[in-house]
Simulated assay, not measured.
Amino acid sequence: MPDSSTTNFTNPSTFILLGIPGLETAHVWISIPFCTMYVIAILGNFILLFIMKTEPSLHGPMYYFLCMLAVTDLVLCTCTIPKMLSIFWFNSREIDFSACLTQMFFIACFFGMQSGIFMAMAFDRYVAICDPLRHSTTLTNPVVVKIGLAVALHGGVLTLPSPLIARQWPYCRTNIIPHTACDHMAVVNLACADIRISSYYGLIVGNLVITVDVFFIAVSYTQILRAIFRLPTKDTRLKTFGTCGSHLYAILAFYIPALFSMFTYRFGHHVALHFHVLFANVCLLVPPMLNPIIFGVRTKQIRDRLLRLLTQKGT
């Protein structure tokens, strides 16, 4: 039987995910922290969704956006981590070609949606602080639904061409992907064709999504800070700014690793491949793990509801 790594083909039926190149012998040990973080992310986000569904006081725009964030977190880590763990534990490296392109789309789509939700949450904080009297009339339920649909389109429409273009390339060198998931560039780099369209499109869309979202978040917080500094007392300023704390921590947990990963992948040609792969997985898993912790600890209504649930179960 010919080796799949050297067989010539133009329409591969499967790809082989290598895992973390150079660290194959440590896969089992690496799986322990990743599995732990994945379990925390799943439990945390499901608990967050349950609390916001069962607590009437949490039925408001900010918490609807938080529900959207929890759902995107669940999808983002679930579309990658189970397959990664199956590679580490069972050496299950094969992935169907169509499934690989689907995973590629889901990673990019929900990553973009997550960024869009942070922008929507910044807009909510802007209205709540800069124009509080109109908050309930500006962010009505129909408006929140429209924003949610815009966020979904924001993630989906822009990223859909990437797997569609990747499907058209001939793959005739190898079907081995040096990654734990079907990362866009890791896949198209296997094509024996001029892939500049895929490369430029992925680079432009990725930079555009993050740049535009960060710009509007920065504009929102500039106006928020201006409004806060006009408040009469220091205690009032701190209390008002405290309502943005959870959002700011979540933004930092999302954008700092994402920007670092993007720049090292594009410009860090001398950085070891296993570092790129490890850090890419960290970017996909750490924010979904931290978000429910950040919002659960810093949001009084969520914290109080969780404590009541634990107290009731303990009695």
Rank of each mutant, 00 (worst) to 15 (best):
P2F: 07
P2C: 12
T6Y: 08
N8Q: 15
F9E: 14
F15A: 02
P21I: 08
H27W: 05
H27Q: 05
W29E: 12
C35G: 14
T36M: 14
M37L: 14
I40G: 03
A41T: 00
F50A: 11
S57F: 12
L58F: 06
Y63R: 10
M68H: 08
M68Y: 11
D73Y: 01
I81Y: 02
L85W: 03
F90E: 06
N91H: 15
F97C: 04
A99M: 10
A99Q: 06
L101N: 05
F105D: 00
F111L: 05
Q114W: 01
D124N: 13
S136M: 14
T137C: 07
L139H: 02
V144W: 03
A150D: 06
A150R: 09
P161R: 04
Y171F: 07
P178Q: 10
A181N: 07
D183Y: 12
M185A: 15
A186E: 03
C192S: 07
D194M: 07
I195W: 01
R196P: 04
S199V: 15
Y201Q: 07
G202P: 00
V205P: 00
V205N: 07
V209W: 01
I210G: 04
I210E: 03
V214T: 08
F215P: 00
I217F: 01
R226N: 13
A227E: 02
F229A: 15
R237C: 03
C244H: 02
S246E: 10
I251N: 03
I256D: 11
F260Q: 07
M262W: 14
G268P: 00
G268W: 00
H269S: 09
H270I: 11
H270N: 15
L273K: 10
L284I: 09
V286N: 01
G296S: 04
T299C: 09
L306S: 08
R308S: 13
R308V: 15
L310R: 10
G314L: 14
